[in-house]
Structure formats: C-alpha cells, structure tokens
Nucleic acid binder design. Structure first.
Lengths: 361, 361
DNA sequence: ATAACAAATGTAATCGGTTACATGACACAG
DNA sequence: CTGTGTCATGTAACCGATTACATTTGTTAT
C-alpha cells in the first residue's frame, strides 16, 4: 500500500473546485449535450458513451448545480411547507410524513414557520417564491391561508387548515365535525347519557367545528360546554368545573388528548373513577394516550399520512401545470375511533377490576 | 367601488409570467445593474433611482430568481439538515430551534432524514450538494458522520452526534459523560447507596458514553447495568429485572426519560414506592416528565438551544469561507439537573405523604 | 456505388441574475 | 475654457445547466 492521498485511494480527482458539466464532457471526450442526456436519460445514447460519461462523473464527483438546472428548466424539485409553529408532536409527525412522501418522489422539503402571524406567513411565502415548485400552507386562520394562496400567484398551493370551506382551493382537512359526532355516538353506545365537551381555544377553526359537531350529535340533552385551550392544564381546570355542576356529566369529550388527560387527572384527584363514574374520550391519539392508566379512548388522526397526502396532492398539481384540470376539491381525512379503557361500558365497568395504576404494560 | 379585478385593487400588474430583473429595469427606466444594486444595497444609488426601482418591483411583484442568483454568486442562503429520523419530540424541538436561528439570519432550512442508514445519509448528502451552503449532520454512528463530512468535500459541515471525539471536525455534542456523573452524584447526595443503570441501545454512542459515565462515578459499589433501547417498554422490562435481584437497588438512573417512566410504572405495579423505596432519574426532560406522578427528576437538555447553536456555528463557517481559521472545536452542551419528586431524599421521603396519583397540578 | 434516411453527437442560444469595466455627467481648479 | 477627478449609471461577460437545431456517422435500398 503506497498510496499517499485519500484521493488516490478512492481514485478520485483532487477537486479543489466543484466540477461542472464541461469538466465531465472534457474528461469523457464528449459534448456537454451528451453528458446532460446521459444524466437525464432523455435521449438515445451509445452504451460506450454512457459508460465514459458515468466514469467521468464518478471520478470528478460531479453533482449538477441545481441553481443552473432550475434556471434552464424552471423547476426546483423542492416543496415549501409553511407551518404555524414547529412545536410539538403534531408537526413533528406531519413533517415526517411529508419527508417520506417527498423523498419517494425525489423532491426536497423546505420548512418554515410563521409563528401564527399572518404577516410572517406572507413573508415566508414570498421568500420561498422561485425556490420551490409549490407550497403547502397550514394555518389555523382561514384568512391567512386564503391570502397566502393569493400571494403565491401561479404557484400551486395546497391548504391544510382546519376549516372545510376553502372556497374552491385544493386542500386537505380533518373531518372534525364527523369525528365529534362519532365521539358522542360512541359514548352513547356505551351507555352514557350526560355528555359534556371540553372545547379548544375560541377562534380556532378546528375547535369551533368540533364543538359544533358535538352539539349536533346530542340526544335528549342540552350541550354542556366548557372552554379550554388544548393544554393539559386547561383540561384539568375544565374538569374541576364540571365536577362542581349540580348534575355531573357521566362522560366527557375533550377536543384533544392533552386536555382529556388533564381531565382524567382531575377526576382521579377528586376520587371520581374513570371509566366507572365518568367516561373520557380524547382526540388525536398521541403516543401518551396508550400509556396512561386507564388508557385513553380517542379519535386517531393519522398525521403522517395526512402529510403524505398533502405532498402527493401538491406534486400532482405541479405536474399538471397551470393548464391542468382546475383542482378545487377538499380532501377529507376521517379520524378513526380507537377504543380503550377510559370509555369501557358503564354497566360492565363496575364488574371488571380496573385499577388505574396497576395495569400491566 | 367599481374595480373589476384583484389586480386593479392592489394596483399590481396582471403578471401572467413571473417578472425578471429586466422587466423591472425596463419599467423603472434604468439598467439591470441599477436594479441589482438597489436590491442588494451594494453601491451608491440616487434616491430617485432607488424609488423608481422599488416602485417597479412592487408593481411587478418581482422576486429575484434564487437559482439565477445562486448561479452567479455561488451562494444559496440555505442550510441542509440531515437527521437520523424525524420521529418524536427530540427532533421536533431541534428543528424548531434551527428554524428560529436560520430565520434570524435570513437563511432557509432543507431537512431530510436518513432513517438511520449510512448509505441513505450519504445519498441525502449528495443530493443536497449545490443546493445548500453548508450542512448539519446528526448521526448516532460516528462512522456515518465522519464519512458524511468527507463526502461533503469543501462544504462546511457541523456534526451533531453523541460522540465527543470528532477527530477535529466542527461539532456540537452533549456532555453525556458529565451528565451521567451528575446523575449518580445527585442520587448519592440524596442518600442512595445502591444505584443501578438502565442503559440505551448497544452501539449507540450516547448510550455507551452515559453508561461509562455512570460506572465511573460509582463509589463503594459495583455497576448494576441492564440493557434497554430507549423505549418505555424497555424501561419497564429492565425495572422488572432489577426487582428480581437478590439485593435490590435503591436508585435507578435511566439513560432517557421514556425508560425512566417505564421503570416507574413497573415499580408502581410491583408495589415498590417511588421515591421512598427507589429513586428514579431520567435524561432529556421531555414535557411528560413534569406531568407524571411522581414528577420525574431528570437531566434537561435544551434541545432547541442546541439546534440554534448548530445553525449559528454553521453560518459562521460559511461566512469564514474555505480560507477561514480552521475550526475543529467541539462545542459542549451541559445538561441541567432538574430536581423533582422522583428523587426526593430517602430519609425525608417517608415523612411526606407522596401519593403517586393524587397530586394537584 | 450512392442516395436517402435514421441514429448519435455536437454547437450554441437561452434561462435570470451579478459585477468588472466602460461610459457619461457634472463640479471644480487652474 | 479645458483638464481632472468623482459619482451614478450602463454594457456585456460571466455562472452552469438544458435543448432546439445542425451536423456527423452509419445503415439500408436501389
């Protein structure tokens, strides 16, 4: 072994400067056009030419300059994602699903967050122009989302906010209304007759729709709604208020899992048993839901799957081009009811020994 | 109100096609050079010229083509991030911190995950070449990380993997060894004398270093180490095995919070009280740690802060250019001990009534 | 043998910026 | 009035890819 440099070991060029397509052409003794053709697999190429080009590419560690490519093809193979925030499990899952789908299609992902601010959403959007082929915008506020779609101009945009009525823009939304109905019906099916709702922050689209769905599904009872803000602490406070009512509810539908957990904790502290005395159902199916005792019944939203669908939808729009069939459909994601211990039927709940802390894994 | 089109409302051009710098120059009655100068604030420009250009930019909604710009300046103002996975709270936090820092410096973020595979790490890295000014690579395997830095060629790379010995590459690492020592010393300070360790997956750098730190900090006892893999279930199993020992430990240092939680659950199921009979300390400080009862003492890693530092470090490298002072330092992040109920002192623990399920929020 | 045609390859214009250098305008000193 | 220097602006050559079109080479039919 008398090799002296790493380059020599791998048989690579020293490459002080990144190689260009011309360097490759020169080394392979062909024209730049042939190199381009080999790399894009577009045209007829002799096997010997192909081999020489690929060898040169390998030797020079040639990687096409994306800027130059995007300049001549006006494509970037990149998708922009604007999120209201990057905080928490939800967005992490979403990005994961998007990344999976994007990589499957050879696309890249640029992420940016708007911190819930409409102005920042627009700024992020503008700065992505020309950098991406299309965008996915999540915004809890309908106005910001629609505005964003306007600013984007001819760039394809897929909206993913809670609202269903996107006024004819391509979008993906959770069936919040239907899921809320499912939750209430499940509670009734397990024998509950006084069902309360802990709702999400006022003004949040998803919170509004879930509360509305809850109210619409009630039978023989008035709505019992207490305000929350999606945090565990809010769920705890809300449950405390429910316990103070003259007629206590025998079931609670919380607008998300974290509030459901807070409520369950409040019930435990007050000596109210779950599910015997009160059933609790959440929304989301965060990992924690399966880990607490009693395990939490909830409506599972496959977030990663939603991300995947968003990306594939967008890629479809990009490929269709501005002349493609106008796509204004709103794709609906239906949450799945996941039955666990927290809503075990009222009549059987008493018989089985459900010890909240001593369940095996 | 007799305006007919949105364009007319905003006083904007119809813009069927995206405007170029030449369109702006034409409308502002100046040369492209002047437009460029105004936009980059580089040279002396008359106030009237500046105004005309800015008006034209506004009217045409001109946004410079990043591809073209990167072609002539060979900068992209984009940072690439390669993560082993996008799953869970840790990466979500990290991306959040990175995004914050990137946006503060006017940079964009491209993310990609390698699914733990070395080959995929390299593929992701290659495909980012030319698309980014520099990269941040997270890899639990030293080899992959170092390889990545090689493949990157002249592109600046900041490594963020568990290992401390990066052989002279710019990197940021958690002080796993020091934190493990802190954990053990804390347990001893609260009166514990038989301390066990539930370690992370074999082969994982961080797991190895934490285990090694644990062993080195022991006094008057042999190491008691059981294998885990960072999941809650593994923590549960490990704790079960610890309970079966002839001499039960009176404290457990788990290599992360999820395993600590699993262990606490196993102890509760077995009727072993925490912290009276056994103290438990975790690592990470996931949000859940403060929510369970007893609340979990842990070593907090400020993940978002780590992300921020990674980005700023990288930006520094990019600005310095290839001729900058060679930066080979490894920046250390020291986890912070967060004392909670799960390690309350052994002698006082018995006196206070610690009911694992009935604590107020 | 050669015309006619197809397949492979090369040439050069183009994409939209940046910027070195050239040019023009204007002020002021001699 | 002219020479000189300063400042604002314009001209055109890049950056590195793609691709329409031109050209070469090879094949087949007559």
């Amino acid at each position: 072994m008398d090799v002296s440099t790493p380059s020599a070991v791998n048989g690579h060029a020293p490459a002080a400067k990144a190689a260009t397509i011309r360097d490759v052409a020169e080394r392979a003794q062909v024209s730049v056009a042939s190199v381009s053709r080999v790399l894009n697999g577009s045209d007829a190429i002799t096997e010997s030419t192909r081999r020489r080009v690929l060898d040169a590419v390998e030797y020079l560690r040639y990687v096409p300059h994306v800027g130059a490519r995007s300049l001549s093809t006006s494509r970037t193979d990149t998708i922009g994602v604007i999120l209201p925030d990057l905080y928490g499990e939800f967005f992490s899952e979403l990005i994961r699903g998007m990344d999976l789908a994007a990589r499957a299609h050879g696309k890249h992902l640029i992420v940016s967050s708007s911190h819930g601010d409409t102005e920042e959403t627009l700024a992020a959007l503008r700065s992505m122009r020309g950098r991406v082929d299309g965008m996915i915008v999540l915004s809890p506020h309908l106005r910001a989302a629609n505005l964003a779609a306007d600013v984007a101009g001819r760039m394809p945009v897929v909206l993913m906010n809670g609202g269903l009525d996107e006024a004819g823009r391509p979008s993906i939304a959770i069936d919040n209304h239907g899921a809320a109905v499912t939750a209430v019906e499940h509670l009734r099916a397990t024998g509950r007759r006084r069902i309360a709702h802990i709702r999400g922050a006022a003004g949040n689209l998803e919170a509004d729709i879930r509360a509305e769905g809850y109210a619409s599904a009630l039978v023989d009872q008035e709505p019992i709604i207490v305000e929350g803000d999606f945090t565990q602490a809010a769920g705890h406070r809300a449950a405390t208020r429910l316990l103070a009512l003259d007629q206590r509810p025998d079931a609670v539908f919380a607008a998300n899992d974290m509030m459901a957990l807070g409520a369950m904790l409040a019930f435990q502290e007050a000596g109210v048993r779950c599910p015997e005395d009160v059933a609790v159902i959440g929304f989301d199916d965060v990992p924690l839901a399966a880990l607490v005792r009693p395990t939490l019944t909830t409506l599972r939203v496959n977030i990663a799957e939603m991300g995947r669908r968003g990306v594939e939808r967008l890629i479809g729009l990009v490929q269709a081009g501005p002349n493609g069939a106008p796509d204004s459909a709103c794709e609906i994601v239906r949450p799945l009811l996941v039955e666990r211990q927290s809503t075990a039927a009222a009549e059987t709940a008493g018989s089985t020994t459900v010890n909240p802390t001593a369940q095996p894994l």
